[in-house]
Design a protein around this nucleic acid. Structure first.
Length: 349
DNA sequence: CAGGCGTGGAT
DNA sequence: TATCCAAGCCT
């Protein structure tokens, strides 16, 4: 596509968008905070998955002040099952910053909004353009896929610096009168038409598309990186005490499943001496019962082979720092990871 | 920069 | 079953 065709391109794109766009909850509001929440939830997450979470979250935390004041555990419970849990801790931290340091007004320049926790280049552009009408690029995976085809850009989108190429190109093409609709229209196109297996015959702008012109739409975008996943064996100890309570510990804030409570567990230990390993790593003294369950859980970058072991705590055992007993009722209120939920499900059998 | 960070759906 | 994702950000 030539830049001289910009006006005609935007006319086609935007009229298609206004006619075909999906009716989504965050498209029914102009509240910048709600837009912010939706954009964070949508990071690496499908629209259909996000919708119910978004509705519940906004209902429970209708204002930035209400989110800023909420208990982290309560907030995390609203994110349970969505994944990438650091997103919600960063969101709350960012909202607190806005409430406390910006008089509850979200900054309206890229440099300022980028300072907020959890707001990166994409989310900055998305909030600025959608909530405030600022002509800023918001380049995500959709935009790179669509633009790589429109302009026949064959650079590897798996390499971080490649994104700059797309950000520049967006700024050349963006509709200055309605940057909100422009950014959303490109993403909508990527999500519904210009998908990995594109449906070019339905595309409103195919006559501007260099890849379609040359029949290369199926070869773009170029993306090289492949994920290799580690496999880790996890032995998880469901330790009960006479009162029927379960002994849990809190995971560190950083890293996988940050701040989640879990059964004490050890990684990659020889099966024969697992009680000894647990004692070495945690100080806990237990009497092991029989292994009661075994399953696999696949995270984005690591696979856990989980073996759940039932055990009772010996009277002589110390309770290490950071460990707590939970009744069944208390357990219900905790945010739980998928592996934790699977273990509990098995426990009830 | 490379790698860590969840989950459920599509192929 | 295996793979790759889907509106990225942080360190």
């Amino acid at each position: 596509m030539k830049i001289s065709q910009k006006e005609e391109f935007n006319e086609r794109l935007l009229s298609w968008y206004h006619q075909e766009k999906r009716d989504l909850p965050w498209r029914r509001t102009s509240n910048p905070y709600y837009i912010w929440v939706s954009e964070v939830m949508l990071q690496q997450t499908r629209v259909d998955t996000v919708i119910p979470y978004y509705e519940r979250f906004i209902e429970s935390f209708p204002t930035m002040e209400s989110l800023a004041e909420a208990e982290e555990e309560h907030v995390l419970k609203h994110w349970e099952g969505l994944g990438y849990y650091s997103r919600v801790r960063n969101l709350q931290a960012g909202v607190k910053e806005v409430v406390e340091s910006y008089d509850s007004k979200i900054p309206q320049t890229r440099n300022e909004i980028l300072k907020l926790k959890g707001i990166g280049p994409y989310t900055a552009g998305a909030v600025l353009s959608i909530a405030y009408g600022v002509p800023e690029h918001a380049v995500d995976g959709n935009v790179m896929r669509v633009f790589s085809r429109l302009f026949l850009i064959e650079e590897d989108i798996a390499i971080p610096k490649t994104k700059k190429v797309f950000e520049q190109r967006v700024m050349e093409v963006i509709d200055e009168t309605d940057p909100s609709s422009f950014n959303q229209a490109i993403m909508e196109l990527g999500a519904t038409i210009c998908t990995p297996n594109p449906r070019c015959l339905l595309c409103p702008v195919r006559e501007f598309c260099a890849a379609f012109e040359e029949g290369k739409q199926d070869e773009l975008p170029v993306k090289t990186k492949k994920m290799k996943k580690k496999v880790v064996t996890i032995r998880s100890f469901a330790i009960s005490e006479p009162g029927g309570k379960w002994l849990l510990r809190k995971r560190p804030s950083n890293g996988l499943l940050g701040d989640f409570w879990e059964f004490p567990q050890i990684e990659d230990s020889p099966a024969l001496e697992i009680s000894e390993s647990l004692k070495n790593e945690t100080g806990l003294l237990i009497e092991q019962r029989q292994a009661y369950t075994q399953f696999k859980h696949i995270f984005s970058h690591v696979t856990w082979l989980v073996e759940g072991v039932h055990a009772v705590l010996l009277d002589a055992s110390p309770i290490p720092e950071g460990y707590r007993f939970f009744s069944e009722e208390e357990l219900e209120l905790l945010p739980k990871s998928k592996p934790m939920s699977k273990l509990l499900e098995q426990l009830k059998k």
